[in-house]
Simulated scan of single mutants.
Amino acid sequence: MNILWDFDGTLFDTYPAYTENLYKVLNGTVVREDIYRELKISATHAFKYFKLSDEQIKEVKKLNLEIPPSSIKPFPNVEKILRFANKNVIMTHKERKPVLDILQYYGFEKYFIEIVTVDNGYPRKPDPTSYQYLHDKYDLDLAIGDRELDLIPAKKIGMMSCMYGGNCEAADFQINDYNDFFKVVKLNN
C-alpha cells in the first residue's frame, strides 16, 4: 500500500502548540477550545475568523516556527502504519525545515520517499495538483488526513481517503486510533 499523508494533525499532534501560540497573540481573549476548532478547519480560516491583522499573523507564524520538535508528538501507533506501507509521501502546507526537523527528531524521515511542502510552490489544498503529481509518480492507494481539506484533493483524482480523528463526507472511512487502521483496511479490501 502506498500512502499520502497530511502532516499537521495527522502524523503529528501539532494543534495544541498552534492553539497556544494563537491564544498568546490574541492575548487570551478567546478560549482555547474555540481557537482549536477554527484551526482544525485551516490556519487561514482561523486568521480570518478571529480577524487577525497582518502583524498578528506574522507573529503567529513566527511563534509556530519556534516550536521545538520535542513539543510536537507523533500520534500513538502511527509508526505501525508507516512501517506497514510500501511507500509513504507527505503533502503539507507547512514549511520544509520544520517538517524535516520534526521527522528527524523522531527518526521518521526514513519512512518517506518524498515530502511536498508549501516550499514546492503547488497551489494550496483543496487544489489537487500536488496530489496528482505524487499519485502519478508513486501510484498512491490512499490519502490520510485530519480535515476535509486534506481529503477533497484525493477524491478529485480518484484516490481512496481516510479521515483521522473526525468525520467528513469526502472520507471513504474514518479512524480515531491508528490501531483501528488495519481493521478498516481489511474491511475495505
Rank of each mutant, 00 (worst) to 15 (best):
E109C: 04
D119V: 11
T44P: 01
P76Q: 09
L82P: 13
P153W: 07
F47W: 14
D101N: 13
N88D: 08
A17P: 01
G28N: 06
V60L: 08
E20Y: 15
A170P: 11
R83W: 06
I35E: 08
L39E: 04
F112A: 01
K58T: 05
N86R: 13
E66H: 08
V116F: 00
K94N: 05
A17D: 03
Y105L: 05
E20M: 09
T29P: 08
K80F: 10
I81P: 10
V184S: 03
C162V: 15
A46V: 13
Y106A: 03
N189A: 06
V25N: 03
T92G: 00
H135E: 08
G166D: 02
P153I: 14
A143N: 05
E114F: 03
L187E: 13
P16G: 05
D101K: 14
P98T: 11
P16Q: 06
D34Y: 14
E169C: 05
K97S: 08
G166A: 03
S42Y: 14
T129I: 13
I113C: 03
F84P: 04
G28C: 08
G107D: 07
Y49S: 01
S70I: 15
N188K: 14
K137T: 15
F181T: 10
L134P: 13
F173V: 12
S53M: 10
Y138K: 04
E114V: 11
I41R: 10
T117S: 13
P153M: 04
R147G: 03
G9K: 05
K125W: 15
K156Y: 05
A85L: 02
K80S: 12
I35C: 04
E38M: 11
P153H: 07
D172L: 05
A154H: 02
D150K: 00
K73P: 00
